[in-house]
């Protein structure tokens, strides 16, 4: 049973990675939010399994916080934002999608290569998935770079935090509770500020296209 569960961590890790790729390729904002919610759910599941296998009780708490925050609260906030901003249309990408995907694959290889020596040092049950976690972080970062609209960028930022959280769980069986609480709070405040920010951009430029921000540069 335990062996099966240990295998299931790898499964969830792969789900995370696939979702990260899916988010890069996804053009619709609404689907993007659904994907983000799914990613959060996969993260919660993975954390719960690690918590059960290692018997670390504080991981249950962090799984609970993650659930409340990333599966319930933030998606609701995001839905409200896109409703209020009236932006359920397609998103365009700066590069074409295949090129981005290819860059993403290179990043995944790089991340695995990088994680291999670290993973061998770590004693955690989920240590094999460190490479995937790192790849998720880099892919989300890539997504932030290639997106031109504000909402997808925010989702990229949140998804990057998912990857970081997974990396922490995978490599060291979770961070100290105080750090996790701090990060959770940061993310919540961050999304609120970014929400305000998005409304301000819209107010100013009648669009959420962040390319308009180039005008703010000091000559």
């Amino acid at each position: 049973m335990d062996a099966l569960l240990a295998q299931s961590i790898n499964l969830f890790a792969v789900v995370l990675l696939v979702l990260a790729f899916a988010m890069i390729a996804q053009r619709r904002i609404l689907t993007l939010i659904h994907l983000f919610t799914l990613q959060g759910a996969a993260l919660v599941a993975a954390t719960l399994v690690v918590a059960y296998l290692t018997g670390q009780h504080h991981l249950y708490w962090s799984a609970a916080i993650t659930f409340v925050l990333k599966v319930v609260l933030i998606p609701i906030l995001l839905h409200r934002v896109i409703n209020r901003l009236n932006v359920r249309w397609d998103v365009e990408t700066l590069f074409n999608i295949p090129t981005t995907m290819l860059i993403g694959i290179v990043l995944v290889i790089f991340a695995f290569n990088l994680a291999a020596p670290i993973a061998s040092l770590s004693a955690s049950v989920a240590s094999g998935t460190l490479g995937i976690a790192l790849a998720c972080v880099l892919l989300s970062f890539l997504m932030m770079i290639v997106r031109a609209k504000a909402v997808p960028q925010v989702i990229g930022f949140l998804s990057m935090e998912n990857g970081l959280f997974f990396a922490a769980t995978a490599a060291t069986s979770g961070m100290p509770m105080i750090v996790e609480l701090g990060i959770a709070f940061d993310v919540l405040v961050g999304i609120l500020i970014l929400g305000v920010f998005m409304f301000q951009i819209r107010e100013q430029f009648d669009s959420l296209d962040i390319r308009h921000l180039e005008k703010l540069k000091d000559e």
Binding site: F110, L138, L142, E214, L216, K217, D218
Partner: peptide
């Protein structure tokens, strides 16, 4: 130094991205 400032968020993100990659390579 001001030439670094392009005004495009994607470029700024790219700066941090490249820094991150380079640092990871150095750490490896």
């Amino acid at each position: 130094v001001g030439r670094l400032q392009q005004g495009r968020i994607a470029i700024y993100l790219l700066y941090s991205f490249i820094t991150l990659i380079v640092l990871l390579l150095v750490a490896k």
